[in-house]
């Protein structure tokens, strides 16, 4: 059974999570992807982003949104984007903004893994391409930051989610499902190359 996690998260709650745990997330989080990371890295500190994200989660996502007639926003589709592109920035972002976890897909590298361990944070893997299901987990759009400057996919969306499903694939204890998978499949790939049934 998946664990239900209410946001914000305490450091103790994060350190209690381990690779393989399935979770359902409820509460508010913030989206941020390529342009947001580059921006955050270019400024000393951003108070508004800090206020939205501290103790909470950063979601690697560029949603499809629709502006309704009354000016409100509706999330139409919102699955995760590939996280590894943020590897150069994420460790610093986690430290500077007290982020308790990152939601994305594909996993991240050793620099982020070390930051998760040092600061008490976790990597939560959502299913890529699951935009309709995950979009329906967004219950409210609380606001959007830097929309004009960055455009809808790259803007920072402040969202409320309910029962958003994810799996812990990198934890605060230095474990990474991705590092293990890479090593295991590398050995299998090498064997498959050498074992060619078509070769006479």
């Amino acid at each position: 059974m998946p664990k239900t996690l209410e946001l914000p998260l305490s450091e103790a709650a994060v350190r209690a999570l381990h690779v393989g745990d399935e979770v359902l997330l409820t509460g508010t989080l913030v989206t941020g992807r390529d342009a947001a990371h580059k921006y955050l890295h270019s400024v000393a500190h951003d108070a508004r982003f800090d206020e939205m994200v501290r103790g909470r989660l950063l979601y690697h996502c560029g949603p499809v949104v629709k502006k309704e007639a009354d000016g409100s926003w509706r999330v139409v589709a919102a699955g995760p984007t590939t996280s590894i592109r943020e590897e150069p920035y994420e460790a610093d972002t986690i430290e500077a903004y007290g982020i308790r976890g990152v939601i994305g897909k594909g996993g991240m590298g050793p620099k982020t893994l070390a930051a998760l361990q040092k600061h008490g944070a976790v990597y939560l893997h959502a299913i890529g391409g699951l935009a309709a299901v995950l979009g329906q987990c967004v219950t409210r759009v609380l606001g959007v930051y830097k929309l004009e400057e960055l455009g809808p996919p790259e803007a920072m969306w402040h969202l409320e989610v309910k029962d958003f499903p994810a799996v812990v694939t990198m934890d605060a204890h230095g474990a990474s499902l991705h590092a293990q998978m890479e090593a295991d499949s590398a050995a299998a790939a090498r064997r498959l190359m050498e074992n060619n049934p078509h070769r006479a």
């Binding site: 589709a77 391409g129 935009a131 309709a132 299901v133 996919p153």
Partner: peptide, 17 residues
């Protein structure tokens, strides 16, 4: 299930269109 819901509601299967 995601594809079923996307088809039913005419929303993108994936937000990266």
């Amino acid at each position: 299930e995601n594809v079923r819901r996307a088809r039913e509601a005419s929303v993108p299967v994936c937000q990266d269109t």
